[in-house]
């Protein structure tokens, strides 16, 4: 018979510690990888699809059917072309966010629904919104249709004193509303959302 030397030893302690460390690292990586994205606005988990913009048309004459953008993200904003401050600021921020996104920005559709149908013609809307980005769309319709659309999207509209000739302002809620790829309202942003934060959220919505 031939005998061979055998060493009997316990597993080295450092080796076990290394495995524990790997395990903890795995947990940490998993936590980071799977953590929920923190949106810069108020997230909504609506069980119903985004309300339709019934009776409205885009500035190019097409019906304003948001479902046509399913698979992409839609940003909805209520404003008007004579808006002195918040509308141009918001649309400029959205345009910058789209630029941040590069080619993914092409999958973001931006619609500004007018709250001032008395003055905002389709041509006015086109020249106004495309000034910020050629892909932006304006939407308009009858006063009643516009009021209904604003109401269901939580937009308060109040026309100030004055006439078309003398001029007037329109107080309105300046929320920016993101509709996800499945056609559900997902995030409502305040007016001062930063373009890079918005871009990050939109990337998340695009998946």
């Amino acid at each position: 018979m031939t005998t061979s030397p055998i060493v009997v030893t316990t597993r080295r302690r450092w080796e076990r510690l290394a495995y524990v460390a790997v395990g903890l690292l795995g947990v940490a990586v998993a936590l980071v990888a799977f953590r929920p994205h923190t949106f810069s606005g108020a997230v909504i988990q609506s069980p119903s699809p985004a309300p339709a913009l019934e009776g409205l048309t885009f500035h190019d004459g097409r019906p304003a059917e948001l479902w046509r953008f399913d698979g992409d993200v839609t940003l909805l904003f209520f404003g008007y072309t004579h808006c002195p401050d918040i509308c141009p600021t918001t649309l400029a921020a959205v345009a910058r966010a789209k630029e941040h996104m590069g080619s993914d920005g092409e999958r973001v559709h931006v619609v500004m629904v007018t709250v001032d149908p008395a003055r905002d013609t389709a041509d006015d809307l086109e020249s106004y919104v495309t000034h910020f980005d050629p892909s932006f769309l304006g939407a308009t319709g009858t006063a009643q249709a516009l009021r209904s659309a604003a109401t269901v999207y939580g937009i308060h509209v109040e026309v100030g004193e004055g006439t078309v000739d003398s001029g007037y302002t329109v107080d309105h809620t300046a929320s920016l509303i993101a509709i996800d790829t499945d056609g559900f309202v997902r995030v409502v942003y305040p007016t001062d959302v930063a373009p890079d934060a918005l871009a990050s959220d939109l990337e998340e919505l695009l998946g």
Partner: peptide, 17 residues
């Protein structure tokens, strides 16, 4: 026995956990 490790000739050692 924790691990049994066959090693080089002449090395015979053992440890408990």
């Amino acid at each position: 026995v924790g691990d049994l490790v066959g090693g080089g000739a002449g090395t015979v050692a053992a440890r408990r956990f």
